[in-house]
């Protein structure tokens, strides 16, 4: 049984279908990469799954519960965590405060009025900060971080929620090769214990982390398999990598 399942997902703007009857199954503990050329509908698919955009039709279910029409925050509470393409952190807050907010054991405004000290949360904050390499920057404001560090902070903010499924939209965008490799190591450390759906363009990074890959094209499902199978798929090479292209970087 799939942990995250999408059936016939469609998003249309008038006659234009940016996601067209797309199906996807992600199983518990799996790290799945979602590939496709620009405009393939990858980010829109994440938007639909997380509720940022409303689906025109189709069904989204998480852990056997249909969440298609739920508001964003309820989907998150049910187990979805999302990292955005453009890093979204609270720039006016410190790294520690960002992670504290993300540690959402209680989300009620009234209950949180009585949370002044939460030692357990701070222990977890330090664990995650260490995991994403920001332990020494806890007191720094997010606006003082480099681009790569900001990406890691957002990854940490998703991790600390301990969601059932982590949706990562281009987590290495704008990173140096060294930062990308380190991010890959973080993701590899999550394999098995976490379920991830990663949208990514960098084929080197995909090779570093991917177990299975799903390819989209023009909003539709194109292919699925291991990275080797995908790289050797003639249809994928035609629409995505170019007929004679090398699968080094999209």
């Amino acid at each position: 049984m799939a942990l995250l399942e999408v059936k016939g997902l469609t998003k249309a703007y008038d006659q234009l279908k940016v996601v067209d009857t797309f199906d996807l199954k992600v199983h518990q503990g799996e790290l799945r990469c979602l590939l496709g050329p620009n405009g393939a509908g990858k980010t829109t698919t994440l938007d639909l799954i997380t509720g940022r955009q409303k689906a025109t039709s189709g069904i989204i279910s998480l852990n056997d519960t249909v969440i298609t029409h739920w508001p964003e925050h309820l989907r998150v509470r049910h187990g979805l965590g999302r990292k955005f393409q453009v890093p979204a952190v609270f720039k006016g807050l410190t790294v520690q405060q960002n992670l504290t907010v993300a540690h959402n054991r209680t989300t009620s405004p009234i209950r949180n009025m009585f949370v002044l000290r939460d030692g357990a949360a701070q222990t977890r904050v330090r664990q995650v900060a260490t995991q994403v390499g920001l332990a020494r920057r806890l007191r720094d404001k997010a606006e003082e971080l480099s681009h790569g560090e900001t990406q890691w902070l957002e990854i940490g903010m998703v991790l600390i929620q301990n969601p059932q499924v982590l949706l990562m939209d281009e987590p290495t965008a704008g990173m140096t090769a060294q930062e990308t490799y380190k991010t890959g190591e973080i993701f590899n450390s999550l394999k098995g214990s976490h379920t991830l759906l990663v949208v990514e363009h960098d084929m080197g990074f995909v090779r570093q982390i991917a177990e299975r890959v799903t390819v989209m094209h023009m909003g539709r499902f194109l292919a699925e398999g291991t990275i080797a199978e995908i790289e050797n798929d003639s249809e994928v090479r035609r629409v995505y990598l170019g007929k004679e292209g090398k699968a080094s970087h999209a």
């Binding site: 940022r52 998150v76 979204a88 952190v89 609270f90």
Partner: peptide, 17 residues
């Protein structure tokens, strides 16, 4: 803290639940 987080980025806060 959450109120200030929402001030900085309401959508991020929404996607934290």
């Amino acid at each position: 803290l959450v109120v200030q987080a929402i001030r900085d980025d309401p959508e991020r806060a929404r996607f934290l639940g």
